[in-house]
Amino acid sequence: MTTWITEHWRLLLPLALGWVCVWLLMPRGPHRSRALAGIFGLAGLLAVKFYWLPPSGPLLQDIFFLTFAAMAIIGGVLMITDHNPVYAALWFAIVTLAVCGLFLLNSAPFLSAATVIVYAGAIIVTFLFVIALAQQSGSAMYDRRASHPTLATLSGFLLLGCLMFTLQEWGGQAAAEGGNAFLKVPAGTTANLGSVATEDLGSLRSVGRSLFTDYVYAVEIAGTVLLIATIGAICMAPRRSQGNL
């Protein structure tokens, strides 16, 4: 047990620091030690940076990646722990912008723009809902007390630990032997012809070619899902007493 811990302290240290940070920040009453949680969170982020995010390629790309990653993670932590639902929606907007920046680094500019457009509408509607439905005079009781904060954070960080352990295993040993099932293009199958490697990865042309040749059934299904969701939302939305919306 102790040997396992000493072998995997690079995995366990950021997890423990992050768990303490999120557990301290969980809304459980009037008093939260935010400064202590911030110290633990920054230490956890630095541990993740030094042990899990090695420098990869050009310096400018690394700087952008680290900035967007830190924005996404800090915004996510503050979103799930903020007392005020309006601020939580604002933090979610920050996370969405940071994820769009990471999409740009992943050479997906079209997806970045599409995500901004879709989530701009979604976040504005969510704002309207929060302002209309939540109490405007301070945060409500159910926002000031989390439900089962200790158990939930423990299980969440257990999930994160399992994911990162898997990542460590295939990134460490299997990649040294020349890649494994995650990393290799399957040899026995023919690749999807519309999605093969091109020079202009991420442009509207390549995404459209992939969507409308290889994944045209997925596009049809997505359209059907949108139609059914529209019908369902109209059916579920509350009606006025007059009978029309």
Binding site: V22, G76, M79, I80, P85, S147, T153, L160
Partner: peptide, 19 residues
């Protein structure tokens, strides 16, 4: 992975339907 785990924690601990 970190974003996924944070979302899972938020899903379990928040009591506001919108959040």
């Amino acid at each position: 992975a970190i974003l996924f785990a944070l979302g899972a924690i938020g899903f379990l601990t928040r009591r506001n339907l919108i959040l």
